[in-house]
Simulated assay, not measured.
Amino acid sequence: MKKALILFVTALVLVSCKGTDKYVLRDSLGKVNKVLVVTKASDWNGDLGSEIRNSFGEILVGLPQAEPILSVSQIAPNGFGSMMKVSRNIMIIGEGEKEEFYIKRNVYAQPQIIVYVYGTDDASISKVFNEHKKEIMDAYIDSDIKMTQKIFEKKKLDESQFETVKNLGITFTAPDNYNKVDDTGDFLWLRQHLLSGIAKTGSNNILVYSVPLEDEDKVAENIVNVRNQIGEKYIPGTNEETMHMITEEAYTPFTSEMVLDGKKTFETRGKWEVKNDFMAGPFLNYSVIDKKNNRVVVFEGFTYAPSVNKRAFIFELEAIAKSMKIK
Rank of each mutant, 00 (worst) to 15 (best):
Y178E: 11
R53C: 02
E240K: 14
F254H: 12
R269I: 04
V165I: 15
G169S: 10
G96Y: 04
N167P: 04
V32D: 13
P253A: 11
N33Y: 03
G94S: 03
I320F: 03
I92P: 00
E153W: 06
N89R: 05
K180M: 14
V72Y: 01
D290Q: 06
K146P: 01
G46T: 07
Q149V: 14
S160E: 10
H193S: 14
N228C: 11
D158A: 13
V181M: 11
I289T: 03
R88Y: 03
V9K: 02
V259A: 10
K166L: 08
L190M: 14
T164L: 11
K133T: 07
K322Y: 02
F299I: 15
K180I: 12
T164E: 09
K275C: 07
V86L: 04
Y251E: 12
Y178M: 11
D277V: 01
Y178D: 07
A109G: 10
D217E: 15
V37E: 00
K327S: 07
G49W: 00
I289M: 13
V274I: 15
I113R: 10
K292Q: 10
A139V: 01
R227W: 11
T255E: 13
V224M: 06
V128P: 00
A250T: 15
I326K: 09
M1G: 10
G79E: 08
E267I: 01
H244C: 13
R227L: 09
G281F: 02
S160C: 10
L60W: 05
V115W: 00
E97N: 06
A220I: 08
K104L: 15
W189S: 09
K22G: 11
D121E: 12
K291C: 02
R295E: 06
K134I: 08
G185P: 13
D144C: 05
V297K: 00
D186L: 14
A41V: 08
Q112N: 02
K200R: 15
L190D: 08
E240Y: 09
T148Q: 06
N309K: 07
K263L: 10
I59C: 01
D122P: 03
G237C: 13
I223A: 02
L5Y: 07
D186G: 06
K3G: 08
A4E: 08
I114L: 13
Q192R: 15
Q112F: 05
E248V: 09
P282L: 02
G96H: 07
I125S: 06
V86G: 03
Y304K: 00
E100I: 10
S160W: 08
M91F: 01
A4V: 09
D144Y: 09
K127A: 08
A280D: 11
I75E: 05
N89S: 12
V35N: 03
V13W: 04
